[in-house]
Amino acid sequence: MKKGMTLRRRQALLGISFIFPWLCGFVLLFAVPLLQSIRYSFSKLNILPGGGYELESVGLSNFRYAILTDATYNRLLTEAVLDMVINVPLILFFSLFCATLLNQKFRGRSVARALFFLPVILASGAIAQAELAGLINMTGSAQAAEELAESSALFDTLPFTSLLLDLNVPMVVVDYLIGAVNRIYEIITSSGVQILIFLAALQSIPSSMYEVARLEGATSYEIFWKITFPMVSPLILTNVIYTIIDSFTNSPVTETIYNTAFQSLDFGLSASMAWIYTLTVGLLLIGIGYVVSRRVFYYH
């Protein structure tokens, strides 16, 4: 650092030198590949025998193929989006519920906390893959394995369903509830980080607020909706985004993208599939972020 620079300028240089490793990595390993991937998605990529490759421009045909011709891509993408639409509210509700539970004082709280965060440690794509493969092997068919995995909750929902239908609860709601019960394992295991974030938010609420509310004679129910909920609401947005990204990083769609590239060796098609996917996720994030952020209460 030379003398004669103003403090401000020196600080700026220092700041840039702190983020320099990241900046290098970002340019070389994120921005450039990102642009290249756009280019690939519009071209056909031929690997040359020497190890290099050449591009052959094909216009929009990769995108057209992915959306219109490919047998499964379309269906997988819509399924992934629908799955997310069902799962995100459930995960949010469940994790906020768990966080409020774990924030209370009771005996064995530290054990309960340790257990609730165990899924964060154990969530692994490899294990899920191996388990599914094991089931396929056992039943002899992918379809049967999938059904078996779904029903492995071993909870008979049929009487429950007919009870609800007899009560004239609309079919859509019943479907949703039954789905939620059947997904309970999936939901519990994928809400670890969300519980952590909510728990941290709950603990940052000043206790004086609760004291005042108690003195004014508010009930616990009122306190939850008038203090706790607004105070954690900014974190709802964070959690929604985290959940969406998380649910999309390990989905059948990404598997298809991977297989298209490295098994059928169609790199261009894979890149265009990835871009369709990215755009879908991006649009969803923007839409949901916009809706949620308008309802969020910011304390500061």
Binding site: A261, S270, A274, V281, G282
Partner: peptide
Amino acid sequence: LVPPQTLMVP
């Protein structure tokens, strides 16, 4: 926000 799969091939 960008899924890592987008960058996979490059």
